[in-house]
Amino acid sequence: MSVLGFAILAGLIIAGALVVVLSENIVHAAVALAFTFFFVAGLYVLLGSPLLAVIQFAVNAAAIPILTLFIIMTTQSRRIRPASGVFYLVAGFLALVFLVGLWGYLGAPETAFRPLGPEGLGVRLLTVTLLPFEVASVLLLLAMVGAVVLARRREE
């Protein structure tokens, strides 16, 4: 696995995420979100999982940002008023504490890298996680019905 590839992807992901949380223009943030997730899909390729990468690209990097943009248009949001400095301080502090705390724990024992092809993943999806797979379908159904019920116009 190429160190350079990982470094470039990681840099792009972090940069994209920073734009998402810092940009005052919400459209820029949404576009940055799409790019960030696109680079995460690249990360999955690096991890030897093209299936995951494709789905990440289709769902997270395409569908979700488009939906987000649609909502942005509907609600006519453009700019995000910056939060007060205190918020930034608190949030920054929290994030820093979280990071530093985690860094200390990152001594995970090294193990060999062993990727798995798409068929393997697909087979496992319908054997090992058959029940969760079905549950996920209920979850999507619930979300769909919920969204319809909450958003549809009142019938007279």
């Binding site: 996680t129 029940l131 969760p132 549950v135 996920a136 209920v138 979850l139 619930l142 979300a143 919920g146 019920v149 909450l150 009142r154």
Partner: peptide
């Protein structure tokens, strides 16, 4: 962990919708 998480989300989403129900 997987089923735990999905079960949690399923029950949580149901409550999100119910909380918003009085449109």
């Amino acid at each position: 962990l997987l089923l735990f998480f999905l079960g949690l989300e399923l029950s949580a989403y149901a409550t999100y919708v119910l909380a918003a129900y009085d449109r």
